[in-house]
Design a protein around this nucleic acid. Structure first.
Lengths: 227, 227
DNA sequence: CGGCATTTTGGACTCGTCATAAAAATAGAC
DNA sequence: GTCTATTTTTATGACGAGTCCAAAATGCCG
């Protein structure tokens, strides 16, 4: 598990790959050791101030082993991409009858908040997480890249979900607006939390912006299969 | 002038800094030489395949001189940030009476298309420009960063333009949605151009998406000073 | 010409990333 | 248990972007 999982979302730790044989278990163990060491160091000194060599040394492992498990340094920090991607895709695909994809995403936001899902938790720890990202140009760049990857995923999911023909530009517009809205809602909610130290206020801000943007995007996508 | 200016928007070349004394002139000359060399090499082999050393050698200049004029390698490619930023800011600030900021941006899009402004030109050359960016992870990352910088600029301009108090989250939501819409419109228009080889079709696609998104964003920002 | 500021330059250094090959650990077959 | 094949780890070396620093070249002005 990586920084964000360990520090912010501890309840997700461990047990995600089948560890049948000893080889897989050992591999997972070293991976874990590397991630733990990286997490601790990042937490102590920030992302950019920690070198791969230090992580390797702290994990008592060769430098190449680190790259073996985590192709990029940023992968030691952001590790929940796949899950988020999957969540978004299933939201678009498996939805109740008569609910538009856009409405499904709006409801997802409300559900995540209601369930206190890790993605939309506002706490001192999540604040530290945000700050760590903000302080590192590398992590900010990666965050932007992930945002675009998620937008592409949503666009593809929208096309798959509706089977719309020739409406790809609209799907990509919808995805782009959706991601922009979610990102902004998330950031602004965190800003609110930082100012008020109230998780409730932050959640309210998040949902307020999601709903506002949702209404607008629905109008923008009027006449398409997505709204 | 850099890659995009020289190759895509040649009519903007030259004459942007006052060259009173010989020192400034020489400095500008070396800067130009570096940029020209970089432009040619990027054009020939793509961005990532060219090293700073090669650029320096081609410009007959020391390696450090390159970094002296262009702090990052990407700055040799993207050089029109400031102008775009200024254009967006003035659009938000100096607009006709009774025209909302959002509507001002919509009209700007139509005006740029009508004037065949460099930003929204669709041609074989602009296509090559896009392709060069797409093929380089570094340039894609920089493009994303610029997008965020422009969004921040718009948000600040919106706040300045309306003098709205305590509505900053809405301003940032508006800016974020606006930039997402423009980016998508631009990309989709280029995609259309690539498929149809018709600049008219591309322009139509661009304006269609801008207008669609514009209507939606107006709804999203209903009740604020921005819509 | 000679002092002064700016610009240019070379060299050494850090860090992330990649390629390669060797070494170590492990699983399976006998 | 031993041998072999596969996987995993490791060391080494290289490359390129970016930074620091001190020295050298260049233009400016008295």
């Amino acid at each position: 598990m990586q920084f964000c999982t360990q520090s912010i979302f501890p309840w997700y730790a461990g047990a995600m790959t089948d560890t049948t044989d000893r080889r897989s278990r050992k591999r997972q163990a070293t991976r874990q050791a590397i991630s733990n060491a990286a997490t601790r160091l990042f937490w102590e000194r920030g992302f950019d101030a920690v070198t791969i060599d230090e992580i390797a040394a702290a994990a008592d492992v060769g430098r190449m082993t680190v790259f073996n498990h985590f192709p990029r340094k940023e992968d030691l920090f952001f590790d929940r991409e796949a899950e988020g991607r999957e969540l978004l895709r299933t939201t678009a695909l498996h939805r109740e009858k008569g609910v538009s994809p856009l409405e499904a995403f709006r409801r997802l936001a409300h559900r995540l908040i209601a369930e206190q899902a890790p993605y939309v938790v506002f706490s001192a720890e999540s604040q530290a997480f945000i700050r760590t990202v903000e302080e590192s140009p590398t992590l900010k760049a990666r965050a932007r890249a992930i945002r675009d990857e998620l937008a592409a995923e949503i666009a593809s999911a929208l096309i798959d979900a509706t089977g719309a023909q020739g409406a790809d530009p609209h799907a990509r517009l919808a995805a782009s607006l959706l991601l922009a809205a979610w990102t902004t809602a998330f950031i602004e909610a965190h800003r609110t939390y930082q100012q008020t130290q109230s998780a409730e206020a932050a959640q309210a801000q998040f949902l307020h912006l999601i709903d506002r943007a949702g209404q607008g995007i629905a109008v923008a996508l009027q006449g398409t299969a997505y709204a």
